[in-house]
Design a protein around this nucleic acid. Structure first.
Lengths: 375, 375
DNA sequence: ATCGCAAGTGTGTGCGCACACACTTGCGAT
DNA sequence: ATCGCAAGTGTGTGCGCACACACTTGCGAT
């Protein structure tokens, strides 16, 4: 046993002790041990609640710990502990060039960085147009072991009860895509979907007469009312219209992902019945569908606003068919989603809960500067 | 010397080597050294460009480094290197309850966290209403040694040339308060001031007739045209008015910080001459001055919008004198400003360049939930 | 009286890297 | 032939912590 407090070790002991009333430069476990008159292992047991410590020592060590306000060096802790962490990323499947491909790029970059912190990223994918596939994935996740999760919140109604399970399991999670403020999430990495709706409304309406009618293009989901993000955007959109004396009509039109002929028929119908339509919007990233239709019919002068800078939308914007795109840097969401969880698990660094990303507005004039760099 | 590649060390060597074509779990300096047939010190010299390595070994080691795509373990590096970093925070002086006090709280929290990474925070303060004091501070900073800087950009015209000096010295810096995109900043932690101006405009105008006149309350600066933030907000504000067919007039009124009598005289004058004024705005955090005046004159029905949730504004909002506050979490700016620089210096982790914070809107109804937590 | 065992306790090692320091080699100057 | 010195090179230690492992102590069972 050490003879505690009053020993003055030679050499570097002197440098660190700083015997005056000064706060010591930094208090380490050895310092605690010396002060409490025990070994570092005993201090370690107390710090980690490993038990096997006598009541007397426990009390003494805790007292010292509290007195010096001990904060472990997280850098050293990470290096020493071989602890492996697994982060589950729950996101949609995608094809190249789709919105979620950019998200995946951010996840991949984070994955590369996180490897050095003993963090592994595991992806779990579902069909973004099929709520049942998401439900099935959640069932899988119940049997999986992981230390944190990044959850795309497309199916809000199914995410919410699942987060309750995660809460019960003590697993932290961060949201991407859209926020669900009612949940106990560690963070949300994304834009304010509601405000992004208002932005689209402003961009769309600024060139139109107040009485003009609008079309809302939608992709139907199997058994669901659309993604939470789209719903929130639509809420913000309609809210803006209300607040700005919009006096026209909004017509929904259900489109299909890869069925140009079908979409053309539906739109022909719509425009035949409502020739007054002067603007159109989509709340997901598929405004290229509407754009493709309109590009082939230049006589129809319809103002078009959509979301997300994916290749097909970018082209339509550059061609002048799309008036504006509202965007949200999916690659940053992927990167930050993983990294914020990583920082929390590894270093105990709590991220800002709602680190809202900027709502980017892309026009023909500035689209060329918009590149998908995390930096 | 080791006999390079083909040795099969006993014990843990086997675990790590992963002799198949698999990517090795993680490549360390010892692995590089073994592969190149040199010692770790020689590898270290190459990695850090310390010289004293023969051309042959240099080439060989570099080849290995490249082949295995070596990435140093930043955690271990930080622990091993006793390197001390100093972050200079250049910010205004403040009294308790002022806007910058909240900012300081965030800096203090970051400081506590950063200490364990061998990072020290040093504050340099200037008078936010006196450009000359800022200039004098910059002169001081030229002789100071630090590894990174957090710069409040109030005096944009003086900040810009200074950042050129920092660039020349190779010192990274992050902006807070308002962004100066033309500069080579590592990051900007704050809101979009321009958009925050538009938000205030919308909040102010939504209850007014298009023809109503407005007052802009201003605190005069010594020898300067107001902070960059305020100017940007005003630009965004005026831009919004233009885009929304505002047909009234804007009257500037110069107020003083602690001179109630003077302010009352000036405002009495103004309202006497322009009884049509129905709205008022300030672009800094002193809307409580206008609010105090209006609270004492309830007959004047003037809609008032201001910035920042400081105590005096909070009270006036709760009392219904202020219609809305636009806010920007200064404590988060302080925290992130320091931490992003810290992460960059210590771990080489590049922050998002423009991590725009959300523009918060506070009304009587939601102000009570708005607390200054970093979390 | 002896043994086994639970409850405590301490020593030693390694995480991957940075860096101080000691050492070797070979060549020019004497 | 010998020395000094520059150019290379390697060994060893420590950063603060986690954790495996060995060890001590005392008490109940025999």
């Amino acid at each position: 046993m050490y003879d505690s407090e009053n020993d003055s070790e030679p050499g570097r002991g002197m440098e660190r002790e700083n015997l005056g009333s000064e706060a010591p430069a930094t208090v380490r476990i050895v310092d605690i041990a010396r002060m409490a008159g025990v070994s570092t292992a005993t201090v370690d047991r107390v710090i980690h609640n490993r038990g096997k410590v006598s009541a007397a020592n426990l009390a003494r060590i805790n007292a010292v710990l509290q007195r010096v306000d001990y904060r472990p060096n997280l850098i050293a802790r990470t290096l020493a502990s071989g602890r492996q962490y697994v982060i589950a990323v729950v996101m949609p499947r995608f094809a190249a060039g789709e919105y979620w491909a950019d998200f995946e790029a951010g996840v991949a970059q984070a994955e590369a960085e996180a490897r050095r912190y003993n963090v592994t990223v595991r992806r779990y994918r579902f069909d973004q147009y099929d709520g049942a596939s998401f439900e099935a994935l959640l069932a899988t996740l119940r049997d999986e072991s992981f230390d944190g999760a990044v959850l795309a919140t497309l199916f809000a109604g199914r995410v919410i009860p699942f987060t309750a399970e995660l809460d019960a399991r003590g697993i932290p999670y961060v949201f991407v895509d859209s926020d669900l403020p009612a949940c106990n999430r560690l963070a949300y990495c994304g834009t304010s979907s509601f405000d992004a709706g208002a932005v689209a409304a402003r961009l769309l309406c600024e060139g139109l007469e107040p009485g003009a009618d609008l079309v809302v293009g939608k992709i139907l989901h199997r058994g669901d009312g659309g993604s939470n993000q789209c719903r929130e955007r639509e809420r913000g959109f309609r809210d803006y219209l209300e607040r700005h004396d919009f006096r026209g009509e909004l017509y929904d039109v259900a489109l299909r992902l890869d069925d140009e002929a079908y979409n053309a028929r539906r739109l022909d119908e719509l425009f035949a019945v409502h020739p007054s339509v002067a603007g159109a919007v989509t709340f997901n990233s598929t405004c290229y569908i509407l754009a493709g239709y309109l590009a082939a019919r230049p006589a129809r002068r319809v103002r078009l606003v959509g979301y997300d800078v994916i290749d097909r939308n970018r082209r339509m914007l550059a061609d002048g068919v799309v008036t504006a795109l509202v965007a949200q840097r999916p690659e940053v969401q992927g990167y930050r989603g993983v990294m914020s969880l990583c920082g929390w698990l590894v270093e105990g660094r709590r991220p800002g809960t709602v680190g809202n990303l900027p709502i980017d507005i892309l026009l023909k004039e500035n689209i060329s500067y918009y590149t998908n760099n995390i930096i």
